[in-house]
Amino acid sequence: MGELIVFIIFATVALVSAIGMVLAKNPVYSAIGLLGAMFSIAVLYVLLDAHFVAAVQVIVYAGAVMTLFLFVIMLIGVDNREAYGPAVPAQRIMTAVVSIGLFAAIVLAGRAAWITGSNAFGTPDLNGTIENVSDELFGTWTVVFLSTVMLLTIAALGTIALAYFGTDVPDEEATL
């Protein structure tokens, strides 16, 4: 019962934050909304006994990704509010229809291939501790893990390249 309460609270927070993210006019509030959603998801991970993933979720998303977002928002100017008004006719309505249709389709598909609650909640088979996750990560998935290392290195190089080459336009932000 306690778990259900926690779930309802944080699921609500996640949904509200996510909707807020989409609807907020100011990108900073969008970022805050996403931050809230990510935090709630981290709590839900704890609820699902995935402690390590939860910690990484906070460190990576809240700690690094969202900080970067905010950094960039501030770098390129927060007052740059987008002009509203649909580019495609009836865009909002179409968007609403498509999103709700997608949600319905996913739920329908899920119902067709639903997970058959084999584990009653509260009796976890596994514990998402660092030891358990890392056994799997460095055992079965070593090669994949190493390739993500490559991926990150390449991403870092690409970012540096983008920042270095392409400064032919005079820019005032670089002096920050």
Binding site: V53, Q57, V60, I115, N119, L126, V133, T148, I154
Partner: peptide, 24 residues
């Protein structure tokens, strides 16, 4: 959690890595 397989969490970690690279 449902299936008792830790692979799901490992996959989540990989998604996070990819997301981080993508954001950069």
């Amino acid at each position: 959690r449902e299936l008792g397989l830790i692979e799901g969490q490992v996959a989540a970690l990989f998604v996070m890595v990819v997301a981080a690279a993508e954001v950069t």
